[in-house]
Nucleic acid binder design. Structure first.
Lengths: 335, 335
DNA sequence: GTTTGTTTCGTGAACGTTCACGAGCTTGAT
DNA sequence: ATCAAGCTCGTGAACGTTCACGAAACAAAC
């Protein structure tokens, strides 16, 4: 009944310790522990009991070494604070678990550097990486050598597998909706620095041109607070805005706050459309109209793609290593 | 420049392949790859280049086997959909990374069974577990044998390390606040089935008794939707309620929706206090008053505790294996 | 009582890496 | 020339497990 964790001094019990204690051989212990056939029931139980008593845990390293690698994939996530990413992570974990894979999550949000740092941390322990790597996709692939990488939302990453989103399509969907409900003075709030438009921003700009719509573009830090401040400033500079499209749902939440603070009713004075389709949108006031993505689809797509790359069914740089998903417009109260 | 991922057929390149290609020995390759001293700069570069070309990646299993285990801890999370948990996970990951540990996340939310299943999946690949294991804490510890477990929010789990929260204190804080702003007809919304009060619920009940406050208790499924429906029903059965304390922030968000739908103003007609202190609260309308927990503290506490258990500095079942954290009342608009 | 088959168990080898130690070579000083 | 000291590099051993195979032991059938 004594119980004490094996300190750093006390070496872990090995399979030989158990074998000796039970008066049997290694192989018999292996058979007992892994429920393999060819062993008497009584022996099996005796060995298992003894193993429990000695606190024996098979070394995953030794096991992995001899059995050939269980594939384990790294998941690099920018920011677990934005509900979108945990939802995505959850989906990937689910799909990977179905395949018997093992997922190691690393988020590089809290000031702990860039996506490259995450990949660097992940590198020694995984056979592949899935992640929102942003502009560092190519370097990440270089760092991982021949191990496959699936990059989300970065179509330029040609060396790896990629999943991107049809932003022109999504932008059109949103702008048409705003036009349809009679909005003429539209604005788009992008994430990131003012001197550089995101892929989404560029698509929105082009869609506006195509549709002959006049569009004001503002920039904010990628967070609810950033969006709130930016929209506050925008309302001062461009008071007539009556339709607002926002980079993502979290920022849209911040935008709603700023609009309320500025005395604008939503959607009366200004309609708002977000992007992501996270459950948060339904909790806001008013409920958020958004360009939604089925995250289970995204996770499934990423894992499928990686599977193809890992098994070799999908040669790198071939057609099929890159696929594009489409958003769907979910209309709720805000637009 | 040819690049192709090593299929399942093509065996991985080993250290011997690199050594042969470079015309050196294993050890020299090891020295080159790990930036160890005692090797000529020129050799180092030549070997590294060759390794890159052959797509050589050191086997983490072989490395782990000989170097002794890098500790890796499993994190068992009930539901990544509730923003509280990713935030907690993020905090644990951060603290663990600081120690050079490695974190494997498993969530058992999406119908994939109980916390025990998660522990079972985690068991072969981790040296310890941190998690919200609920009632299965004891079984989990049994399953993990001598490997330490840190259980969150389950004070009865005496076999393992534990972190719990001072609910009597928190309940008092909330009820006093509601009384202070003149609320007399209070209700508490618990999570879980009607026939069983949660630990939080029990503490709230006792605090109400102590303070001589009359309190109605309702039950809902642990989700925003569950809370919305339950509060809707409550408003019909108990229309006079003017102060509401809710199991957690996500459910509080649902409660706000139901109150709005029921034509109640918040906090005018009914004040609301949540519990968790997640950022979501600030995005709601009105902003949510809540019993907040500094998640970085919780993560740090869990990792510290585990560290003590792993190193043996903290004997199991001793004082100090169980510690209690306190909530803080963050007053915003809703109460 | 021999043969045949089945169940139960044990032994050498291998997985891929690092560690401890020692060997060869170069350099510089005596 | 000799020795010592410092680089550079290589070899046997070990890490803990499973796999492939063979050896006992036992039961069943003739």
């Amino acid at each position: 009944m004594s119980s004490s964790f094996p300190g750093p001094t006390a070496k872990r019990a090995t399979i030989l310790d158990v074998a000796a204690a039970a008066g049997v051989s290694r192989q018999t212990v292996t058979r007992a522990m892994n429920d393999m056939p060819g062993i008497k029931q009584e022996t099996r139980e005796r060995v298992q009991e003894l193993a429990r008593e000695l606190g024996y845990t098979p070394s995953r390293y030794a096991k992995g070494l001899v059995q050939g690698a269980r594939t384990s994939v790294g998941l690099a996530i920018p920011d677990l604070t934005n509900p979108y990413f945990p939802a995505f992570a959850s989906s990937v974990v689910e799909m990977a678990t179905l395949r018997g894979w093992n997922v190691v999550v690393d988020d590089f949000g809290h000031g702990s550097g860039s996506s490259l740092d995450a990949v660097e941390r992940l590198s020694p322990q995984v056979d592949a990486v899935i992640g929102y790597l942003g502009p560092h996709a190519a370097e990440a692939q270089a760092l991982l050598g021949r191990r496959p990488v699936v990059v989300l939302d970065e179509p330029s990453a040609l060396t790896a597998g990629g999943i991107s989103f049809d932003y022109p399509f999504a932008a059109r969907l949103a702008l048409e909706r705003l036009a349809e409900i009679g909005r003429r003075r539209l604005a788009y709030l992008d994430a990131g620095p003012a001197w550089q438009l995101s892929a989404r921003g560029a698509a929105v700009g082009r869609a506006a041109d195509d549709l002959g719509i006049d569009l004001t573009v503002a920039h904010a830090e990628d967070s609810a607070e950033g969006a709130r401040d930016a929209v506050g400033a925008m309302l001062a500079a461009y008071p007539g805005v009556d339709g607002l499209l926002v980079f993502n749902d979290l920022m849209a939440a911040g935008a709603l706050k700023a609009l309320a603070a500025g005395g604008r009713s939503v959607p009366g004075d200004c309609a708002v459309i977000g992007m992501d389709g996270i459950p948060l949108g339904m909790l806001l006031t008013p409920e958020l109209t958004t360009l939604s993505l089925d995250l289970r689809d995204v996770g499934r797509a990423a894992v499928d793609l990686l599977d193809g790359l890992l098994t070799g069914a999908l040669p790198p740089r071939s057609a099929g290593t890159h696929l594009t998903l489409r958003h769907e417009l979910v209309i709720r109260a805000s637009a």
